[in-house]
Nucleic acid binder design. Structure first.
Lengths: 145, 145
DNA sequence: CTTCAATCGAGACCGTGTATCACTTGGTTC
DNA sequence: GAACCAAGTGATACACGGTCTCGATTGAAG
C-alpha cells in the first residue's frame, strides 16, 4: 500500500483502520495546509459531496489528536482550531490571516517553566504557548507601500 | 460610595453602570478566589436565588474581559475559564485542582517572541502562555507520604 | 423627581461537540 | 476470494456554552 500521506500513516501505525472517510479527511486536511476548524472540514466535505457524516469528522479529529498527529489551538477569539504536527513537544506560530502555521521547538521554555515553578511554588505539569501574527507572505501582502 | 471592590471599581472607572446584578456578580467572583467557568457563576447565582439571568452573567463576563479585569483561560480540556487580574501584560499559572491562579510577569517572553519572529519570518502580534499544575497547598495535600 | 440610555430577565436561538444505535466495511482467516 | 466480526460509519438526538431579541427596569445625570 504505497503513497500514504503522513496523516494516513499516522492512522495505520497507531493501529486504526484506514477507512475511506479517514483517507478523504486526511486529504482535505493536507489540502488546507494550515490550521482549520472542525466546521471548515465539515464544509469541505459537504462541498465535495463526500457523504461523510459530521460525527465521523469529529471522531477523526479526536483520534488524530490522541495519536499526536493533530493539535488543538485556542484562537484569541475563543474558537478552537486544529493544526497537523509531529508528536514531539513543540509550540505553534499561527498566521491570523491565512492560518498557515509553523512549529517551533521548546526554545528554553522548559527552563522558564522550572523558573516559574521555583518562584511560585507551583508544580507545573503542562504549559502551552501559542503565538499569533502574520506569516511572511501575508505580511508582505498587507503592507502596500 | 465607599467600599468598592476591585471589580466594582473596574466597572465604574470604565464608564459602566454599577448595577445590582453587577455588584452581586463581582462579589461571587471575589468569593471564588481563582479561575471559574461561566457555568460556575450561573450555578452560584442560582444557588443564592439572586434572580440574575444567564445572559446577564455572560454579558458581565464579556464586559470585564474587555475592561481587562478578567482574562479568559483555555483549559487543557478545551473548556473556557476566567480569572480576575490586572490590566498589565502577564500570564497565569493555574492549579488544576483548586483553580487558584497567580499572575506572572513577562519573564523574558517578549524577547523570546522577538527571537521567534526573527527565526520564522512571522510578525508576531499576540502570544499567550498558560501553565497548569498544582499550587503549593494542593501539592502538599496530594503527597501523603 | 423626571428622564432616558444603559441594562436587565426570559426565552429563543445557534454552533460546537458528544452519545446512541442500527448498518457497513476493512482486514484477517481459512 | 468468501466468510467473519470488531472497528468504524451516518443519521439523528442531545448537551452545553454562548449570543440575540425584546419588552420591562433602573442607575445616575440634570
Amino acid at each position: 500500500m504505497p503513497d500514504l500521506t503522513a496523516l494516513e500513516t499516522a492512522f495505520e501505525t497507531a493501529g486504526h483502520r484506514l477507512t475511506r472517510p479517514r483517507r478523504a479527511l486526511a486529504e482535505l486536511i493536507d489540502a488546507r495546509d494550515g490550521a482549520f476548524s472542525a466546521a471548515d472540514l465539515v464544509a469541505d466535505a459537504q462541498g465535495r459531496r463526500l457523504g461523510i457524516g459530521r460525527a465521523t469528522i469529529f471522531r477523526a479529529i479526536e483520534l488524530l489528536e490522541e495519536i499526536g498527529a493533530l493539535e488543538r489551538i485556542d484562537l484569541p477569539t475563543g474558537e478552537h482550531a486544529y493544526v497537523p504536527c509531529g508528536p514531539a513537544h513543540h509550540h505553534h506560530v499561527v498566521c491570523r490571516r491565512c492560518s498557515r502555521s509553523v512549529e517551533i521547538g521548546d526554545l528554553g521554555l522548559g527552563a522558564l517553566a522550572r523558573d516559574i515553578a521555583r518562584k511560585t511554588g507551583y508544580q507545573i505539569d503542562v504549559h502551552r504557548l501559542e503565538l499569533f501574527g502574520l506569516c511572511p507572505d501575508c505580511r508582505l501582502a498587507s503592507v502596500p507601500a
